[in-house]
Design a protein around this nucleic acid. Structure first.
Lengths: 129, 129
DNA sequence: TGACATCAACGAAAAACTTCGTATGATTGC
DNA sequence: GCAATCATACGAAGTTTTTCGTTGATGTCA
């Protein structure tokens, strides 16, 4: 009963996770500087969010230095998969295939990207045999 | 300044929209009965949510009858596209292609589904020429 | 017509999310 | 050593989300 599965990150939390994935383990200052390039969020806001995310188990904190160092507890891809599964469940009747097809048909994809997807399909088809 | 773009529906709102898309225009009672098959939400909870959704512009209300009739203001696919674009933006650095590839590689897809996706790719490739 | 059912509206409360001010303690530079 | 700086922690306020109870109006039917 100790570690149940991680909660879905909120928008703000996801923005922070993005920085942590990009930069690796970071201090509050690091994250704040990165996020403040365009928007404007106070330092203590980021701090508070990271504290809450620590409680939730979304990040882990290293307190050995004065400036605590945070890192994402779950990898970027794992989180992405989680979010996709969640969205498929909530908005696509649980069908990931429907999700993929909707995503594909609703925007312009250039030839290179289409090829990359095609190759991925080939790989998957090989596996499913 | 009148109609800005619709807000992202919350989880509960999305559940209600799901019913409206499936059933078409419905009363609060209709939605409530549909959603209460498994979970347990009170009648007035659904009512309140639909009132809020009306304010937000997610649904439109026909008040000619005593039991108001609600319908989704935006189609299912349009909403799905919106949600996908939003998720791509928030979690995939704005790349819908990354989203698709992650969705494809993170689960088992049967042969028929893979073929359907392949055909879709063919169609898209034709268009992009 | 009078009791009962049905419905919308309103308000309120609890939880989650977002934001930040202030307090307080550690570190650093002069 | 002391002031300025940098860091965490705490609490609080405002907003959104979710939930429902109550009220009052309208309709039904025996």
């Amino acid at each position: 009963m100790s570690d149940r599965q991680p909660p879905r990150p909120t928008d703000s939390e996801l923005a922070i996770l993005g920085v942590l994935w990009e930069r690796g383990p970071s201090t509050v200052r690091d994250v704040h500087e990165q996020l403040n390039k365009d928007g404007s969020t106070g330092y203590t806001t980021i701090l508070k969010l990271l504290q809450i995310m620590t409680e939730k188990g979304l990040v882990v904190r290293d307190e050995t230095e004065r400036a605590h160092v945070y890192q994402s507890r779950y990898g970027e891809q794992k989180t992405q998969r989680q979010l996709l599964a969640d969205l498929a469940e909530r908005a696509f009747g649980g069908s990931a295939t429907k999700l993929v097809m909707q995503a594909l048909s609703s925007r312009k994809t250039n030839a290179a990207e289409l090829n990359a997807i095609r190759e991925l399909l080939d790989t998957l088809e090989g596996e499913s045999r």
